[in-house]
Design a protein around this nucleic acid. Structure first.
Lengths: 233, 233
DNA sequence: AAGTGGTCTAGACCACGCG
DNA sequence: GCGTGGTCTAGACCACTTA
């Protein structure tokens, strides 16, 4: 007999994963409870709990008190996207970052933005349009509305030097964010800024953020044609 | 004095988050170690560890052994996308799901697919094209290459009844997946299938999956115009 | 060398939700 | 009611990394 395995929670996670993949435990099937598995693996229940918790948060197990733990019938894979400051996103591509403020003024929001934020149309907002560049080529067009009731200090920021994106990340935490990814055909005015052909397919990310229940900002990021956003799971 | 808080790990996470947001702990700053925080909060170190671990995995703290825990200088927000079976995706929209197999035959892979999978060009592959529909309208065009060395059993599946998507989720687990999101202009042949105008902007998801080190499948999902993919953080 | 986070243990209590 | 997972505790050992 070799020495027993160290029984880390990762090793138990791997063993459980093996049993799922090998169909030893079938989709939908109830697996033994934590106490029994702890005995089988010769470890503490907390260790089993950690391993099963990780698999549950990965979508491979369904766990419910009293009802026990089952192998997920329809495993939902979760892909994690890392959303960094645009400046760092560009720098990590190995490109030189530049930034240009296009316009910045107070105004009232379009109905669609008001609806997304849950604000009245007459709310005091700051509208910012800015272009982010990578190696002098247009990289991303930022079209943003900031709720001045939530972040009045942004009026004192010099948005021609620091992007609203970066200023907000450093100065306006948010507790909740909604992300929507779409593809749109470039509108003529956006195409001009992005050096794209009108009608070109643009990858667009719309983000709405709240701090607690207070809406903070709505932003539409239109990437230059050909952009690829990566994720891993 | 009121009774002490129950000191769940969530309550400690919330308190640490409050200190970060309030700038009591500044970006880049070293925060007290787990032992000291456990004393301050009047709880076990494991509880502090769990709370700080959650914040670190959310990207708000940087933790390193010996070096301690710092407030992240550039918090990287992580958005989680749930990737379900297409059938369920449609059904959860409240629409009636339908599926149509367009073509299915063995063949050799294009160079780009071979490169993504890390396979030689002459690998034995199955090429599947299929259309997923929501309420009889084209929803998603699936263009897939399956590595027959990894999943020979798929030849026995009736892919005119169950989609390759669904068959693979239930029969071919993967351990690693790469996702790429882009926007492309609809090619004439794809536009026809999707009932879209040639040149329309399509939201595209390319996924490459491996089981261990063995490539399993490469798939390109082209959504009908107007598709919105949502995520939360 | 020494201090930090990472993890395991054994035990306990509790919240939830099915029957 | 009661079995399940969820969590907390107190203590211990270890791994990593920086000084």
């Amino acid at each position: 007999m070799s020495a027993p395995a160290p029984n880390t929670w990762q090793s138990i996670e791997a063993e459980v994963l093996r049993r799922i993949h090998s169909r030893e435990w079938q989709p939908g099937e109830l697996i033994p409870n934590e106490t029994d598995l702890a005995v089988e693996f010769g470890c503490a229940r907390a260790t089993v709990n950690r391993a099963l918790g990780a698999l549950a948060s990965a979508g491979l197990l369904d766990r419910r008190r009293r009802a026990g733990t089952r192998v997920a019938l329809n495993p939902v894979r979760r892909a994690t996207l890392e959303i960094a400051i645009t400046r760092r996103e560009v720098e990590e591509l190995g490109a030189r970052y530049a930034y240009r403020l296009l316009s910045c003024r107070r105004g009232t929001i379009p109905a669609a933005v008001a609806a997304a934020l849950g604000l009245p149309a007459e709310a005091e907002m700051l509208h910012v349009r800015a272009l982010h560049l990578a190696d002098d080529a247009p990289y991303l067009l930022e079209d943003r509305w900031v709720n001045l009731a939530a972040v009045p200090e942004i009026l004192a920021a010099d948005l021609s030097r620091i992007s609203a994106n970066e200023w907000l990340v450093h100065n306006a935490p948010y507790t909740k964010g909604d992300f929507v990814f779409t593809a749109v055909e470039a509108a003529p005015e956006d195409a001009g800024v992005l050096a794209a052909r009108p009608g070109a397919a643009l990858f667009v990310l719309e983000r709405t953020t709240w701090n607690g229940s207070q809406p903070v900002t709505w932003v539409r990021l239109s990437y230059a044609p050909g952009h690829r956003m990566r994720a891993t799971a």
